[in-house]
Amino acid sequence: MRKIFIFLLVLVLLPVTAKAMEYTAPQAPLEAERYMPEESASFSEDLWYVIRSSISHLQPSIAEAVRISLSLIAVALLVSVLETMSGMSKNIIQLVSAISVGILLIQPSNTLLRLGIRTVQEMSEYGKLLLPVMASAMAAQGAVTTSAALYTATTLFSTVLSVGITKLLIPLIYIYLTICIANSAVGSDMLKRLQSTAKGVMTSSLKAFIYIFSGYLTITGVVSGTADASAVKATKMIISGAVPVVGKIISDASETILVGAGVMKSAAGVYGIITIVAIFLLPFMQIGIQYLILKLTATVCSIFGSKATVNLIADFTTVMGFILATLGVVCLLLLISTVCLMKGIT
């Protein structure tokens, strides 16, 4: 009787149609697609291709940065003549110098800041498309709790960071730059304190954000990953034990399906990582070039220039560094989340 029942059950299950789930990463944005390889080879080769194509587009940024640097050196050289003076005119010339440096640097800083904001928004938009794909593939692999926790965390932190950058950090950067120019022109202790407070707020908020995000990921990964691993193991044991004769075969087959879902998830994840790097790399390098050349200019000007002028150039360099750090944080957030989702259950 039992054997007849099992035979009938198998007969019913056999004709059930099988549907395959497809987990593909979303298409890269048009801007980033230019720097991506047309045909995918290996991960390292694709990454190297993205790096090479980004570097080949750097030449205009280098030319612009060098042009600004030469202008700053010319202004600093002229003003340096007055270092030996002690009269009222020295303070006025310092004011003129601060205004000139401000005019030379504020427009390029604004352009690079806008570029940074655009890149952050593009990465966030792409993350919103990629992460649901990765999370569903991870859930299909059996890691339901982990995928939900990781997806929620990344979406939350990404949204908070995106809004925080646009509404809080960008206006704070402009306020900081205005205070720097005023401090260089006038040289007041109060302005100096305001300047260091603004700088402290910007850097601390970014640091705090990355610490909280990393901490959350670490805890979530350990707790939910363990829970999912136990759940999958338990399920396989139940299938193996509950279904007689073919239970072990079905249990092994389900493992094959999970491995298949993992492969598709990895493929989508790899493409997603390449796309994120393609969106991030060129703007990062453009801002990085400006940062390095400004730093070099400040070093050269410190040989002959006035302290106030050199400090003002250094302040603008700090802002470039901050934009670089912000871009890096957003990219890191997306990459860590993608890799965690690719890793699956331990």
């Binding site: 042009r67 600004i68 640097s69 030469l70 202008s71 050196i73 010319a74 202004v75 050289l77 002229l78 003003v79 003549v81 007055l82 003076m85 002690s86 009269g87 005119s89 020295k90 006025i92 010339i93 003129v96 110098s97 000139s100 005019i103 030379l104």
Partner: peptide, 27 residues
Amino acid sequence: RLQILGQLNVDMMKIILKAVGIALLSE
């Protein structure tokens, strides 16, 4: 020459040069 290479605004350079000259002379 730096001003030409850096494409710095000629008016800005003239202002700074005049200002430096006036400051030196007055001192």
